[in-house]
Design a protein around this nucleic acid. Structure first.
Lengths: 245, 245
DNA sequence: ACCTGAACACCGTTCAAGT
DNA sequence: ACCTGAACACCGTTCAAGT
């Protein structure tokens, strides 16, 4: 509805203004800049002033397009999950059964989580706009697609809702832990100092942790995701449709 | 190890200083104040200066005990999960099988999550100190207890590790979604304005969401937690111990 | 030993003013 | 119409100074 990406063709680079003020500002450009900023520097480093700097503009100019820092972050969340629209492996309607449909959707969400590990915690923990917009599927479009797909596959209302709940909490738990390992953070500003590992001293009174330390550090996220997703789908398949109150 | 709660019995209220500067400051008192502050006002409202105010002290005094805002938040996370030590339903070693053991632990974590809904997102998304400290079990003591318990119940190393991974991502997904419903937030400062629900307009192109809106808004967290936990335990029971590489 | 005043650098945000 | 300068209120944090 709101015009998207065409209004930069007027008197492009008239010729006498210094080459500083580049292409025109826009909400899209701002959100994109914010996302890559977080990808690179982490959320705590994102500042209205520094974001402006990155766009060759004073911070105050941003307010014409985004309303404030909070709204900016909401925009980032929305935009990041909407990247799934460009993912050809994610289909909008089941063609090979609901299991394949959900499988593709789950992997799509996982791909966006992994490509923006520092943004994903935001997707996970930003206050939801409504109870039916559960993270990480924070977009009416995607929830609609989810419910519509299952409905077309013969799920009744209760079963669709149950599947939605199970699907979202599955994704949230797995992906949040996976990006955490790949180095997310929503807290400190320092990219460095590598999270001072508890060393020998602290591990002495914890023999089991010490023994299993390296096993616990191995990253099997990919296979675990696959296997757990499989089991989730089985669980959904076996879900009774009525809640029998 | 570090003395805990005894050093406030000296010349209590000598008598001539104004009744302002109350009991002595201490790391414990600061962390407690921070937790109840977040419980009441939400994380974004927590400021070194306002926390000082709540303790009848200038913000700068806090730095003698906590090192900075980031360390303060780490302390909050640690302290909040350690509340489980006061939970008599959580046992430190299995007495009625590992299923009962994990069942009690899971419910213990759920209770602390529900009693501090605004703090839990912090437990979930604060950068972990080590790969073997997965949220929400962010404490060497609890991880040790977990592994030790399973080991005593005959789990071999791989199976214990697998169980740990499954257990943590289960808890993280379920509890984060549950506290989100009960009104968490890590973002905005406003306690009010109730998350402007998308109304009719936005729901028109989303017929399935509209139809299932009220079903999606029902809160069945308690039963869902119970049922999913049951299934998780079954899944763990069936876990092969070897990873067969 | 414990707390504070004053100061610094940096925030988000507003608004009248520039072009 | 779009951007900016200047200003306000509020941050986290340091440090010399008070008691």
């Amino acid at each position: 509805m709101a015009g998207k990406r065409n209004d930069a063709d007027k008197d492009v680079i008239a010729g006498d203004s210094p080459p500083s003020s580049r292409v025109a500002l826009s909400r899209d450009r701002i959100l994109d800049a914010a996302i890559s900023f977080i990808d690179e520097q982490g959320l705590p480093g994102l500042t209205m002033r520094r974001l402006g700097e990155r766009l060759d503009v004073e911070a105050m100019s941003l307010y014409r397009y985004v309303g404030g820092r909070e709204e900016l972050l909401d925009g980032v969340v929305a935009r990041v999950i909407d990247e799934m629209h460009d993912d050809d492996d994610v289909i909008s309607v089941p063609t090979d059964g609901w299991q394949d449909f959900l499988q593709r959707l789950a992997h799509g969400v996982r791909r966006v989580a992994l490509s923006h590990p520092k943004v994903f915690p935001l997707v996970a923990s930003r206050p939801a706009e409504a109870p039916w917009l559960r993270p990480p599927l924070r977009s009416l479009d995607w929830v609609e697609m989810f419910l519509n797909g299952l409905s077309e596959e013969g799920f009744d209302d209760d079963k669709s809702v149950g599947a939605y709940r199970a699907f979202t909490s599955f994704l949230l738990g797995h992906l949040l832990l996976e990006v955490a390992v790949h180095g997310a953070d929503v807290g400190p500003l320092d990219v460095l100092d590598e999270a001072t590992e508890p060393e020998q001293d602290e591990l002495r009174p914890h023999p089991n942790v010490r023994k299993l330390r390296s096993a616990l550090s191995e990253d099997h996220s990919a296979i675990e995701f696959e296997e757990s997703l499989e089991e989730l789908l089985n669980r959904i398949a076996m879900m009774s449709s009525a809640k029998t109150p």
